[in-house]
Design a binder for these strands. Structure first.
Lengths: 212, 212
DNA sequence: CCTCATTGGATAGCGTCGCTATCCATGCTT
DNA sequence: AAGCATGGATAGCGACGCTATCCAATGAGG
């Protein structure tokens, strides 16, 4: 398969594919002459994954590169590789303010993790923790209730989701497939979850409005 | 309060506040002379909300303007206003492909809504529905299981979240407060939810890895 | 009253990001 | 032999979220 065919079958323009190659999101094709390269099914698959991460998952190109690199690093154990791949994902910490609200947020989150029984967050801490604290701090700053009691249902539901997600990952037969699935499902189910929540808001709001 | 004080108390530079004023995200201050304006506590509050939406919620400036406008349109009923404000929120539909995967996705989503008993989505359809279909289509295209059975737990959890969210909104005493709370909580709990899900993944992955 | 820094308003520019368009020598195809 | 596609390199574009500069009017200090 040459560039043009790869483009046709993926729906991605050749110019963009070249860009992805330049950025290291895609392995170069097998060079068959000095000026031509051959691409295989695995290139097509990776290209589709990259596209989905970037377009649906809104993952920045630079981050996608790191994720892909981590997913391919076969020097790590399966579990480590899985963690490395997902830890590389977005979740920018935002501006690191450190005001009163941030302190409150940090305490609420710590208590939450305690109550959920999530202890082993402390070695190799995930950037997700920073995002969580920053978001809670923003809510606190606006005066909205965001204490452990309010967060707990969210935490419990997240735990339920994680079980379902990892079940899906383990459906994949190969180790490489599981890594890729972990990345893809982590990222691509996010818009699914958020959309469903918004639809549920509309639904529940309509229900309450009709009830009265 | 003058611009400089508004800036100091919010932590937002005067240049950025002027930008927000220009963009209509913030009401102009009460003009006290030809060249000076006075800002009040409500300006400070709105500024903080806008900042949180943009920085934490990653809401584009143009969208934030629409949301604010909808939230302020007192010509609508409470329920309609609430819907209008949240419907204006991001959730870009992405590129509107219409291939085989999109068809499959559409069917899965329709069946899901049916099983959840969410019927009244069809008048005034939310953009969230488009995002949902596009995301499911991307998963299908990659060959991941994303049928109604896999989506259902997500839908049920979203419904639970919606109940908790609307309970929190109804804690607000005033109608205006409820609208603002709906917008703020819809947007600002999104990073909370996603962070918790990622932490839960790590937790559950560690649990399963240790079990063996 | 005079000075002078500050205010708000307008305009233009910057830095990042994700592409996209153009150019070019090579060499496959017919 | 002719012509066009390929892949590699480089430069540019359009959107976005600010940021820097300029300016006349003015309020505050001496």
């Amino acid at each position: 398969m040459r560039l043009a065919e790869l483009s046709g079958r993926s729906g991605v323009s050749t110019a963009t594919i070249k860009y992805y190659l330049r950025e290291g999101l895609l392995q170069p094709g097998r060079r068959v002459t000095a000026t031509q390269a051959e691409y295989g099914e695995e290139h097509l698959r990776r290209l589709r994954l990259v596209r989905a991460l970037i377009q649906i998952g809104k993952v920045p190109v630079a981050v996608a590169r790191e994720v892909i690199a981590a997913a391919e690093d076969t020097s790590l154990s399966h579990h480590t590789r899985l963690g490395a791949a997902t830890r590389a994902l977005p979740h920018d910490p935002g501006t690191a303010e450190d005001d009163e609200a941030t302190g409150t947020a940090r305490r609420s989150v710590a208590a939450l993790l305690e109550q959920l029984g999530w202890h082993d967050m402390h070695d190799e801490p995930s950037p997700a923790l920073g995002t969580l604290v920053a978001s809670v701090a923003a809510l606190v700053r606006l005066g909205y209730p965001c204490d452990t009691a309010h967060l707990l249902p969210y935490g419990r539901l997240a735990a339920e989701l994680a079980v379902a997600d990892l079940d899906t990952v383990e459906e994949q037969p190969t180790a490489d497939g599981q890594i890729e699935a972990a990345v893809a499902l982590t990222v691509l189910y996010e818009p699914v979850l958020l959309s469903l929540r918004r639809l549920a808001h509309i639904q529940e709001s309509a229900r309450r409005s009709g009830e009265r």
